[in-house]
C-alpha cells in the first residue's frame, strides 16, 4: 500500500506545483519561485556540507558568477537569456576548478574561511567590471527577457501580460531545476560514488582502506554543485532583472538562509532541505512584518537544532519512527538459507 501511496502523493504535489501559474495568483508564483530557488541552493549546499563534508560559506561566489555570466551574455553579446543561463552555470563550474585547487589545501574549518575569502575576491573583482556597471550594477534590457522563446505560447496558455509569462517561465525552470537536482542527488547518492562519499563522511579511514579516493569524490561534488549553484544564480537574476555585486554575492541571501534551511530540515538527509524550505517560508510569512526579529528567530532555531537535534526535523522524524520513505542505503541481500524451497 505504502509503495503506491508515496509516489502518488509526490506525483500529485508536482502536478499541483506545475499547474500553479495557470491557477494561482502572480504574487504566489513569484513567492514560490524564490522558495524553489532557495531549495535548489539548499540541495546543493547539503550535498557539499552534509554529504561531502565541505562546509562552504562561500557559495554566493557561484551564485554571483552564474548571474554575472548570464548578464554578460545578454548585455555584451546579445545572447538569449536562457542560453546565457547555461553559460553562467558553466562559467561557475570553470571557476570552481581554481577555487578547489586553492581551498582544498585548507583542511576542516580553514576551508570555510577560504571559501568565504574567495567569494569576497569574486565580489570585489566583478565590481571592477565597468561594462556591467561596476560597483553599482546594471539592469537586463527589458526586451531581451520578454522575447525569450516560449513567452508567446505561455501567454496564450495563462493569459495576462508578458511580465506574468516571464514569471511563469522562470518558475517552471526553477521547478524543473529542483526536480532534476532531487533525482540526480538521489541517483548519485545511491550509486557507487555516492556510497563511497557517505562512507568517507562516516569513517574516512575505513573508506580509504576499501579503495575510496576522498579527494577525487569531493572535488567532483564541488564541481557539480558549483554548476547547479551557478545555474540557479542566473535564473534568480533573470527574474529579478537587476544586478549589483552586493546583491549577487550576498552572504545572507545565498548562503546564510540556505544554511539555516538545510540545518533546520536535516543536514545530511535528502528530504531535509525540502522540509527546511517549507519551515523557512512559513516563518517568513509569519514574521514578515518584524524584519530583524525574523532573522533572530532563525538564528536561535539553528542553534537549538544543533544543540538538541543534530539531524534536523527529517533526521529526528526518521529516528523516532524508524520510517524512511526515501532510503539512501541499499537493503542488505536476503540471507540464503538451506531450508528455502
Amino acid at each position: 500500500m505504502r509503495k503506491v501511496l508515496l509516489p502518488l502523493v509526490l506525483f500529485l504535489a508536482v502536478v499541483l506545483l506545475a499547474a500553479l501559474p495557470v491557477i494561482g495568483s502572480r504574487a504566489l508564483v513569484q513567492d514560490l519561485f524564490m522558495v524553489l530557488c532557495l531549495l535548489v541552493l539548499a540541495l546543493n549546499w547539503n550535498m557539499l556540507a552534509g554529504f561531502a563534508g565541505l562546509v562552504s560559506v562561500g557559495q554566493q561566489a557561484f551564485v554571483g558568477v552564474g548571474a554575472y555570466g548570464m548578464f554578460a551574455c545578454v548585455i555584451l553579446w546579445g545572447m538569449d537569456p536562457l542560453a546565457g543561463l547555461l553559460v553562467g552555470g558553466l562559467v561557475a563550474m570553470a571557476l570552481s576548478v581554481p577555487v578547489a585547487f586553492f581551498t582544498f589545501r585548507l583542511n576542516g574549518a580553514y576551508f570555510a574561511i577560504g571559501t568565504w575569502a574567495v567569494a569576497d575576491i569574486a565580489r570585489l573583482g566583478i565590481s571592477q567590471w565597468k561594462a556591467l556597471g561596476g560597483g553599482t550594477g546594471t539592469a537586463l534590457p527589458k526586451g531581451a527577457v520578454q522575447d525569450m522563446p516560449g513567452i508567446q505560447a505561455i501567454r496564450a496558455l495563462i493569459g495576462g501580460s508578458k511580465a506574468a509569462a516571464v514569471d511563469a517561465l522562470t518558475y517552471w525552470l526553477a521547478l524543473a531545476l529542483v526536480l532534476a537536482m532531487l533525482v540526480a542527488s538521489w541517483l548519485f547518492l545511491r550509486s557507487r560514488m555516492g556510497l563511497g562519499l557517505q562512507a568517507v563522511r562516516d569513517n574516512p579511514v575505513a573508506a580509504r582502506s576499501v579503495g575510496v579516493d576522498p579527494v577525487r569524490l569531493k572535488a567532483l561534488v564541488f564541481l557539480l554543485t558549483a554548476f547547479g549553484t551557478g545555474l540557479c544564480g542566473g535564473l534568480l537574476f533573470i527574474q529579478i532583472g537587476r544586478i549589483s555585486p552586493d546583491a549577487a554575492f550576498s552572504l545572507l541571501d545565498w548562503t546564510a538562509f540556505v544554511i539555516f534551511i538545510t540545518v533546520i530540515g536535516g543536514i545530511g538527509t535528502l528530504p531535509g532541505p525540502v522540509i527546511g524550505v517549507l519551515v523557512f517560508y512559513g516563518l517568513q510569512r509569519l514574521l514578515a512584518d518584524y524584519g530583524t526579529v525574523y532573522l533572530i528567530v532563525l538564528g536561535l532555531i539553528g542553534i537549538a537544532i544543533m544543540l538538541f537535534a543534530r539531524r534536523g526535523l527529517w533526521g529526528g522524524f526518521t529516528q523516532r519512527t524508524g520510517l524512511d520513505p526515501l532510503p539512501l542505503s541499499h537493503a542488505a541481500p536476503r540471507p540464503v538459507t538451506p531450508t528455502d524451497p
Binding site: I296, G299, L300, R310
Partner: peptide, 28 residues
C-alpha cells in the same frame, strides 16, 4: 562546550547562528 567534538560542523553552525542573532539584536 556542548557542541565541541570530532565533527567540525556543529560548532561552525552554532557560532554562525550566534553571529546572525547578535548582529540583528544590535540592529534592533
Amino acid at each position: 562546550n556542548r557542541v565541541l567534538g570530532e565533527d567540525i560542523l556543529p560548532p561552525l553552525l552554532v557560532t554562525f547562528g550566534l553571529s546572525v542573532v547578535i548582529q540583528n539584536a544590535l540592529l534592533m
